[in-house]
């Protein structure tokens, strides 16, 4: 565990808490992509099956359980409790366009051809593109609430910090996981445009809106 990894995890945790807080306080999930949230639940479920097979630390187990539980709770809020506020018309990205190719790739490019390993690889690839329905939704409506942009910024920061973590681990621990690194870089690149808008607009007190 290094400082980048810890900050990355905290940023990820913060993102989830911001999202839950936004929904709970406003009693609304407007502007949030249910598709992205379903994909995240799938990511956590397929990656953390190792909860049953290997123990790393109390920290690791606790975080995994929280990520899984919060992702399903988010889906419950969006599709049940606050269903009336869910903006499904603008959430039109097709999940199968991500899940199917990513599933195929996980079968072809993995560290080891074992069920748990393929599922882990699937979750890594899927996580890298799971934000696309949300970004698509923002671009379709042309705007995002400020709280939603804070959520996206925290989520993007998490992946950026993980890249620093991998650089650190490569030099100081001799650790290098090509699959995680490539997917993590792709994931971070997807946020670049958003980071630019966040810094130039939201941090200056303006709402995040896209030019027509």
């Amino acid at each position: 565990m290094n400082v980048f990894r810890l900050l990355g995890d905290m940023s990820h945790l913060l993102a989830i808490l911001i999202l839950l807080l936004k929904m709970w306080k406003t009693r609304s999930c407007a502007g949030i992509s249910g598709k992205t949230q379903i994909l995240f639940a799938l990511v956590f479920t397929t990656r953390y099956l190792d909860l049953f097979s290997s123990f790393i630390s109390i920290y690791n187990t606790t975080m995994k359980l929280f990520f899984i539980a919060s992702s399903y709770f988010t889906i419950f809020l969006m599709y049940s409790k606050f269903k009336a506020t869910y903006d499904s018309n603008h959430d039109s990205f097709r999940m199968e366009f991500l899940v199917v190719p990513v599933g195929g790739l996980a079968f072809l490019v993995n560290h080891e051809f074992l069920p748990l390993e393929i599922l882990w690889t699937f979750s890594i690839y899927l996580e890298s593109v799971a934000i696309l329905p949300q970004l698509f939704m923002v671009s379709k409506t042309g705007e995002a609430e400020t709280i939603t942009s804070h959520y996206l910024f925290a989520l993007g920061s998490y992946r950026l910090l993980y890249i620093f973590n991998w650089v650190y681990r490569y030099y100081f621990d001799g650790f290098f996981d090509l699959i995680a690194v490539v997917a993590g870089c792709v994931q971070t690149i997807l946020y670049c445009d958003f980071f630019y808008l966040y810094i130039t607009k939201v941090l200056k007190g303006k709402k995040l809106s896209l030019p027509a």
């Binding site: 790393i56 560290h111 882990w120």
Partner: peptide
Amino acid sequence: NGVGGKHDEL
């Protein structure tokens, strides 16, 4: 490491 290595990250 890295080839089917232990996945200790979240």
